[in-house]
Design a protein around this nucleic acid. Structure first.
Lengths: 190, 190
DNA sequence: ATACGATTTTGATAAATATCAAAGGATTTG
DNA sequence: CAAATCCTTTGATATTTATCAAAATCGTAT
């Protein structure tokens, strides 16, 4: 039993042989800081569970990097556009800290789904949960100001500014680095 | 066989008995225009497939209605926050046209999942597909201007302006009605 | 057709955010 | 430790979008 299986079990309790089957198609490794796990244009066929560390998922818009997602301890990251479609991804995945990662090879999951319907359910619940997260984020963008988004972020991820550069966070919030810097400055005087 | 089962079959081919089981927990009805299918604060336990018509999913932000989603022919609509969590929803669902709707009673799905693992897969793929849709929408908001969002919308949903009021569309695009009106005006001179 | 209510557009102004440039601070490296 | 590089902040200005108010348009019921 490892952190990844632990995590999966917390969503749906898996029988031992299903755990084994998943372990067999999972790669466990320590990845140094600033490693590119996926470059855009490539096909993504794994998803990553972070036992420790920090990664970002980002894409390019008009030549600039835009952070789509951060994942840290206990979080997952992948290029879902490609993972789910089999087409090349627009996303890049990069470690921002040295990270201990469990990478599940999605392409090898099919027989596991077939042998263990419970894993199909696990997959459904995981996507569902992440849908809700994205829905939250969506609402935040659709009708909240940059400042409200900032507040929410530091609440959910208090140490993010200590762990990565401002520019990465700014694009995650959908604003420029300068604007984020000013929001933070205004915040200190409260 | 009906439109709803047809739709499900297009995602995953279902054996006949699974189709039956789903049909048994699905309500088929014609709903008049402007009907509220769900009010915020209620628990949502069904999701709706639109054979014809148009609905919007919306919530309140600072007293104002914000459209989160439109669904028309062949689309689905529900208050996913509640459907997936069992908690009261923040969303409202309203028909904008008289609509022919298949409403699947989500709470009765559990035994169907158990009897037919293929339905579990169907569920996973449906959530997955909708995750990708939401991801698209998210990217559109995170780093595209209102005008780019407008362009994308008329491309995907050319007749939306004929079918509902401007205000509903504006909040879907994350802008005010006035601003949307001006974008449209600027567009005509092209 | 006319009048009413609802919806959309237009106008003036204000607020939020971006852009570009430069100045400060950190951090790394020789 | 100093130089070089990278990152963050600050300043000035421009653009985008919101707000509030009024005018124009549309749809519908008389």
């Amino acid at each position: 039993m490892n952190e990844f299986i632990n995590y999966l079990n917390s969503i749906v309790e898996l029988p031992h042989n299903a755990q084994e089957a998943i372990n067999k198609i999972t790669i466990h490794r320590e990845v140094p800081k600033n490693t590119i796990l996926l470059s855009h244009g490539e096909i993504c066929n794994e998803f990553h569970f972070l036992a420790t560390g920090l990664v970002r998922v980002f894409y390019y818009k008009d030549g600039k990097e835009v952070t789509a997602w951060f994942a840290s301890q206990g979080g997952i990251a992948s290029a879902i556009d490609s993972l789910f479609s089999g087409l090349p991804s627009i996303y890049n995945i990069q470690t921002l800290e040295s990270s201990e990662i469990f990478s599940l090879q999605y392409g090898k999951l099919e027989p596991v789904f077939r042998d263990f319907p419970i894993v199909e359910r696990l997959g459904r619940l995981m996507v569902t949960y992440n849908y809700l997260l994205l829905d939250e984020r969506m609402k935040l963008f659709a009708f909240c100001t940059a400042e409200e988004r900032y507040e929410r972020l530091i609440q959910q991820f208090p140490d993010i500014f200590q762990r990565t550069k401002l520019g990465h966070v700014a694009s995650y919030l959908g604003i420029t680095q300068e604007h984020l810097s000013r929001i933070r400055a205004a915040y200190k005087n409260k």
